[in-house]
């Protein structure tokens, strides 16, 4: 078995479109999204509420509910030790184990959701290790205690036998990180892992994650609505709006020289602590309801640069503005309408 070439992405998402069957009709949550994650890379996925971040993340582990419809051309490929796993083609629950808690792990915004209330932290960590590794029960427990110590939980040998509700918010988040990393996944999906935490605790958790990424060399899909967190954590970023990727690029490119009107507006709307006298400029208008999806460019109802007759009629495709930096917008120089 040949090792994967260095250029092979760890994960490749192509033309991913996700709809939900609901009483009110089909809702489009993700529309033609493509991105790659290289081994060891941290990709930030940023966007406001309802932009489709969580639905995209859950698709990678096939965790979306029964009313989900994946468009036929959608492809999610995980490259693992020379194998290419076609995630959306996995049929049996057994086959999905590889993307659920094995090679891919996920941490959630609300840590209580990922711990079963009736089991101790230790029982859950051990169970997961038995499922995904060939450790014995004894080895698994020792490893779990070690992981809890690594994330800064004091007296881990005693605390491992406690329940999640006995932990503070910050400790629960650490325990969840310990559990997610214990199987040494190649890809960690972190969905708003620090949003519920105070800034002081968030800073600790981000430091911890940065250290572990460097040590384990795993890739992270880091989901947040906070561009500051992205600036501090990600190598590259994809900005989502209403289920589409508006702009992608290296973090410095996108934050310092945004080219998509939505990214630029979002950065202007942010209060900047270094310049409290700067006026706050909201993005015009409101986010449209998912039942009332705009035609053409989904941002056209709020865009200051919208070109009538073009932006409301056609969908702009991704355009390369600099190496590795892409945006989907008709107002960019050289984009055909």
């Amino acid at each position: 078995m040949a090792p994967p070439l260095p250029e092979t992405p760890l994960l490749s998402v192509q033309d991913l479109s996700i709809r939900f069957r609901t009483d009110e009709g089909l809702i489009t949550a993700v529309d033609n999204v493509s991105f790659d994650i290289a081994p060891g890379e941290v990709l930030g996925l940023v966007g406001e509420s309802g932009s489709g971040k969580s639905v995209t993340a859950k698709a990678l582990m096939r965790l979306n509910p029964g009313n989900t419809v994946y468009a036929p051309e959608s492809r999610i490929v995980l490259h693992d030790e020379g194998r290419a796993i076609d995630v959306l083609a996995l049929k049996r629950a057994r086959d999905m184990m590889v993307v659920r808690g094995g090679r891919v792990s996920m941490i959630f915004q609300e840590p209580m959701a990922s711990f079963a209330p009736a089991l101790t932290i230790g029982q859950q960590m051990v169970e997961q290790l038995l499922l995904h590794t060939d450790m014995t029960k004894r080895q698994a427990r020792t490893h779990a205690i070690d992981m809890l110590a690594r994330v800064g939980i004091s007296d881990p040998a005693a605390r491992i036998d406690q329940y999640a509700f006995e932990f503070s918010g910050g400790m629960r988040q650490r325990a969840m990180i310990a559990m997610a990393l214990s199987t040494r996944p190649r890809l960690l999906i972190a969905d708003e892992p620090t949003t519920a935490l105070d800034v002081t605790i968030q800073a600790q958790v981000l430091d911890l994650m940065r250290g572990l990424v460097a040590e384990y060399g795993m890739a992270i899909l880091f989901i947040t609505h906070d561009l500051g967190v992205i600036a501090q954590m990600a190598d590259r970023v994809a900005v989502m709006y209403l289920g589409r990727v508006a702009e992608t690029g290296a973090v410095r490119q996108v934050i310092r020289t945004p080219v998509h009107p939505y990214t630029a507006d979002l950065l202007n709307a942010l209060p900047n602590v270094n310049d409290p006298d700067a006026p706050l400029t909201p993005v015009a208008g409101d986010i449209p309801s998912p039942l009332d999806r705009p035609t053409g460019c989904v941002f056209h109802t709020r865009c200051p640069r919208m070109i009538p007759g073009t932006c409301d009629a056609a969908v702009p495709s991704a355009h390369v503005v600099a190496p590795g930096h892409m945006a989907a917008c008709f107002a960019l120089a050289g984009v055909p309408a």
Partner: peptide, 23 residues
Amino acid sequence: ALFSAIPSLDPDDRGRAQRLEGE
């Protein structure tokens, strides 16, 4: 410490902030 913990929009500020220990 509260100021220092706000994630900066400047990617070059990484790891510079002064951190508060504990809860």
